[in-house]
Design a protein around this nucleic acid. Sequence first.
DNA 1: CATGAATGAGGTTTCATTCAT
DNA 2: TATGAATGAAACCTCATTCAT
Lengths: 208, 208, 208, 208
Amino acid sequence: MARKAFAREDKDERRRLILATAARLFMEGDGNLPSAARIAAACDLAKGTVYLYFTTKGAIFAALQAQGWDGLREAVDRVTATAIGTRDATVAAIVAGLVDHLREHPELLRLDALGHGVIEPNMAPDELAAFKAGQTKALAASADRLDQALTLPPGKGLQVLLRSYALVRGLWQSFPFGTTGGDRTPTTGEFHAELADALHEYWRGALA
Amino acid sequence: MARKAFAREDKDERRRLILATAARLFMEGDGNLPSAARIAAACDLAKGTVYLYFTTKGAIFAALQAQGWDGLREAVDRVTATAIGTRDATVAAIVAGLVDHLREHPELLRLDALGHGVIEPNMAPDELAAFKAGQTKALAASADRLDQALTLPPGKGLQVLLRSYALVRGLWQSFPFGTTGGDRTPTTGEFHAELADALHEYWRGALA
Amino acid sequence: MARKAFAREDKDERRRLILATAARLFMEGDGNLPSAARIAAACDLAKGTVYLYFTTKGAIFAALQAQGWDGLREAVDRVTATAIGTRDATVAAIVAGLVDHLREHPELLRLDALGHGVIEPNMAPDELAAFKAGQTKALAASADRLDQALTLPPGKGLQVLLRSYALVRGLWQSFPFGTTGGDRTPTTGEFHAELADALHEYWRGALA
Amino acid sequence: MARKAFAREDKDERRRLILATAARLFMEGDGNLPSAARIAAACDLAKGTVYLYFTTKGAIFAALQAQGWDGLREAVDRVTATAIGTRDATVAAIVAGLVDHLREHPELLRLDALGHGVIEPNMAPDELAAFKAGQTKALAASADRLDQALTLPPGKGLQVLLRSYALVRGLWQSFPFGTTGGDRTPTTGEFHAELADALHEYWRGALA
DNA sequence: CATGAATGAGGTTTCATTCAT
DNA sequence: TATGAATGAAACCTCATTCAT
């Protein structure tokens, strides 16, 4: 039996272990969500124990996605919190921050690309609603800070952020079709360069 | 037993029936792909018969998606084939064409939002590869025409088209999170306005 | 692959095979319902095939129970259809018929004793309702014939049949507690004798 | 942490609390046994604590059933202890006593109807044996008193009691099928009237 | 060509019980 | 005594696909 996690700290630690393990198995895998059984085994826990920490398998991956998108927002927040340069410099910093975060968290886009059809059916309806509401609210807060940092008209920051996210996820899904070389799978390096360029183009147009 | 389709024509007709029925059932449904059995029943065919016309269930929906994206490209082609106005007018026509097509084919985005996790596992690997290659090639052809219509440097048209598609699919998936009203599900009307605006912003930046 | 049952006849035969196998496994087992997998394997069929013939595992056992109770009713019907002797002789024949049927179908009482808690949760709600309605209706028909055979006031036959069935199932469940020998499990032979006696007592009182 | 129950008295009190809570939850529920976790939570105790007072979940509900059947026997005992009237009056008092007790303890029949398949699998074999032996023994004692009160031949009282119990539990389970109104669920009031009548019929026949 | 019976892998979740604290 | 974290077995049913008729 795994050591019992009585302290709050230990429980958080265990929760993190499950999340990290799930992410790792997903990245190592073939694109499908790893089964609850595999996650538990890889954590050296019993299946039931996983369900003490997450109500649903879908909840595990929703948490991973939330983490990922949270990180993206924080990357933006870090810039808007300290922005003192020109507007162009700030935008460049934001774009770089977004791309860097995605580079460090490759599971985010792969999870996201699974689409509505895979994770959502594995979640309880109310959890799904809570997840969406949380994302929306956090996004709005970041957007306000962006408005101030760039002195944008109210609401513009939300619009720009939203469309940037759209480019991020959409480009990931569309990118394979843009490779001229034929059936070659494009590298993630190429993707990140492409994304940075696309974001710059978009922000240029949005802030014109 | 359904009438046997011997003539080439009859076979195409039957194929189209299956596609249309699958699309209808998907749109009427809850977001999941209708089962092969349901599609067959709705067509008044036996399950086995459907497999005479499509090798896998995924192939049916891949064909629907191909149709949808083909239509998007044709919308662009119609503009680039006849463009005689200013660059701005051409861009506006392209954006309007894209949005109009999406409005008329709502199944495209809903299918697309299912992501890699639903249709791809239902397809044979080589079919998937062929599907992607076909899309890539057709896209390149449209992109060339776009280069010429807008006198863009070679390759720029492909880039712009690809990123436009990225905005289309990404915005559809991101849009629910941008609704400030809270738990309200945004309307497709709102989506189309948002999309048109986003595309204009992007093209402005891209062609600056 | 098992031979395909295309003809109506073959399908009925296969259905019967599943029922008989399920009954056998239940009787051989420890009192729990055999799993769908075991039933299928014992029939040399795939699990899915069983679900072509029954919508639910519970439906299999509900069908067995229905069969059993149907048989009890038929045992009564056989007597009431031909009754020409005295009332006492008719009653004796009915009681004997009931007990004989139970002797030949030992699975009926064992299934019945599982109670509401085991089979019902394995059934679809509408199937359960249909099952009950069917039983009620068939019972009423038998009861009418009983009224005529014994020239009972209308409704009396239903009452008597119902209470006889109650004695049957109730005595089976209560009988272990009446064994004076202590922890010895009573034999089914003893049970059948006890049941016959109890039914005679009841009918004597009911028809007094 | 709930207050620790050191004194014998406190422990009995806690045991009673668990029993009462389990009965309440069962009656409020959908017909299934409440889970051990729910019982504990409703008692404001930890799951483990419940297992300090009962060895298994089944033991809780077996105790409830024992209580119920004990009450039935006591209802009979109260009559046989003071019987001075005619035999018919005594029988009428016994039947009335049985029905009254059932009216006041509706959980008894609902628990009983769960059958062998739900509570027994949740009990340790030796507990089950002990439970049955206890019931048998207590029943025999009551039966002796009944023999004397009604001056029955030795053993007749046991037989009559046993068969009365059989009618009680069997009629409860059979009653829904006797409702002529179709899919209407019969009321408990109707059941009690029916039961009283059935018992009278049976005793009349048994003592004839 | 058309049919539809047969296949069988695959994974989530519950919950009674234990035992370290 | 009380707690509650950990355990892990157990089984249902769906559905894409095949192939005998």
